[in-house]
Design a protein around this nucleic acid. Structure first.
Lengths: 338, 338
DNA sequence: TACCTGTGCTAAATCGATTTTGTTAAAATT
DNA sequence: AATTTTAACAAAATCGATTTAGCACAGGTA
């Protein structure tokens, strides 16, 4: 029971292999194959269940019809939703996706990109981590199609799509301030990523706009790579050192989860002892009493836009980009914690 | 800046392409290539950074060096851990992995398998869902390498690996009974899957062994496809209808999470009002106060064993399987809820 | 009549590897 | 000295498609 090849189909239809190829690839008209012959070929191909050999096509055309998706962590709901949407969108367009996670391993990013290169992906979808800038730059210089998601490097000229971080934080801050809360803490990580900076800018701007003084000691910058326990302790010290705080804004869901643990440990009650707001939703936040209010990322929108941008690059005959930088607004979800 | 081909390397080394191929594939000795020439070729290949063209290799050898991993849901921590381990293990062996999720779509399973077939994966790792039996049977009959994980179909003769469900539940039940709890409820879904039945058997057996009567009304079978809200209500009715219950055993983490929500809604306190135990861990269970005790799946062990079993099938020259059915014990993790 | 121009397809080159078969010179054997 | 073996590699076939170039024939034109 061997594989059915194009040659077999040709023999069955009584024509040359090239003719079959033309017809099956929709170039029948262009190659002046008679409709009669064309439809015969189609029928034969259909009922014999012929499927072209992927590898052969790839080898000949030089296109693998595969996209590489590189994310920080393959766990995590952000990736899950992202992957789901991207996979279905890609499939709709005849592409499939290979996933890779850097797993917060700074120098693993580069390896991954090279590995994908070896596997000849046609394009890259990347959520950039701090250590990957050089490798990404390299790809872009080689004119490989690349779209960044969730963050970007100002120095790299390639399309990106992400949530409007500034606006998202603003939405949340306005809610807090609207409830009369003014002593608002902000917890962030110390990595130099544009989205983190934007979130901080959202925080300070919102305060300033409402004439609330920005106090440095209300901003906690946790180190990125730390023992979980160390981070918890630092967070607890921060809250204890600022007993006047009536709300805390966590700038990532990872931080928010740490926050929940500390708040539980300290026996504080949300939202009365302290209101909590978090950037980026998480399964836990829906469930954890009294429900954690969040800024939800428009993941589906990000994924769809990213694929669009990537496909645009893959289409050689499509004009230049109109928009190369897309920001999609996030959605404020009110739950019990703020 | 074109791709470096084997021919280029050959030219640079002053030999024929075939010679290069032999050397790079470790067949130099066998083909009696002089060490001198071989090492020259190696050097050239090394410093020119030559990488063989995957598709060309695949076409020629007929092996895609790709495994297909089919899971129920690409979200979910089970998949996340599974995928991570499988990917690294596969990579270690020179394989890469494409993922697919059936997303609880009964008839999507078949399509997926066909889709992977088209892409010519060398082998399949599958967590079987109810609707996929026929397609899997088909694969096995075609002598495609297949390993099932997490569950299996008794009728299909292909290796599988999963947690020892019976024993896992027993561990949990013994703990509950050891604490003097005897009115223990059991919540399950009504799908006919072997692992669910095994868990139920663990429950009833544990009760019988301790001379505790098994009451039908203490067992709730939720319908698989239901609106989330409906399931919540049914669960709540179940608890209200059995106020004597002092513990509930949830047979999957999805059910456990629903349980948490209902218990919170009803204002019950764990573990005093009701003790809770769940099969299969989840991020939330670590965090959710007071911590939910669980039977943890040995996911890493499952993944590693599965890959081993699959690789064994892929090795044509390896003897027949010794063990084709593997059960790995789960681990009881005590937290605050029971 | 000799010369184009389309039509409708087929033959052959190509992609980049692997693998089988050939080739040549030196060494070994008869 | 003639023949066989062996070492050491080169040449060519192959995997299964796509694509370019080519070929035969009918009809139209100079």
């Amino acid at each position: 029971m061997k594989r059915l090849t194009l040659k077999d189909v040709a023999k069955m239809a009584g024509v040359a292999p090239s003719t079959v190829s033309f017809v099956l690839n929709g170039k029948g008209k262009q190659m002046r194959i008679r409709d009669e012959v064309a439809s015969r070929i189609m029928q034969v191909a259909e009922k014999s269940g012929y499927e072209p050999h992927r590898m052969a096509v790839n080898l000949r055309t030089g296109q693998s019809k595969t996209l590489g998706l590189i994310v920080e962590s393959i766990s995590g709901s952000f990736f899950a939703s992202l992957a789901k949407t991207i996979e279905t969108e890609a499939e709709r367009r005849g592409y499939n996706v290979v996933y890779c996670s850097t797993e917060n391993n700074a120098q693993k990013g580069g390896e991954l990109i090279r590995m994908l290169g070896r596997q000849m992906v046609d394009g890259y979808l990347i959520t950039p981590a701090p250590g990957m800038e050089k490798e990404i730059q390299h790809l872009v210089q080689q004119h490989k199609p690349v779209v960044l998601m969730d963050s970007y490097f100002p120095a790299i000229k390639t399309p990106y799509v992400l949530i409007n971080n500034f606006d998202g934080v603003q939405q949340g801050m306005k809610h807090l301030i609207g409830k009369g809360l003014t002593k608002i803490g902000f917890v962030m990580v110390d990595v130099k990523l544009i989205q983190i900076e934007e979130r901080l800018r959202g925080y300070t701007t919102a305060l300033k706009e409402h004439k609330i003084p920005v106090k440095k000691k209300h901003i906690l910058q946790l180190q990125y790579h730390r023992q979980r326990e160390d981070s918890l302790n630092e967070l607890q010290s921060f809250i204890e050192a600022n007993p006047e705080l009536d709300a805390i804004f966590f700038s990532t869901n990872y931080l928010g989860i740490l926050g929940l643990e500390v708040i539980a440990r300290m026996g504080l009650k949300m939202p009365d002892d302290i209101a909590v707001l978090c950037f980026d939703d998480h399964d836990i936040f829906r469930l954890y009493p009294p429900g954690i209010s969040v800024i939800e990322q428009p993941i589906e929108g990000i994924a769809k836009t990213a694929i669009d941008l990537l496909m645009h690059q893959l289409d050689k005959n499509s004009g230049p980009m109109k928009k190369t930088a897309v920001e999609i607004p996030g959605k404020f979800i009110l739950r019990g914690s703020a």
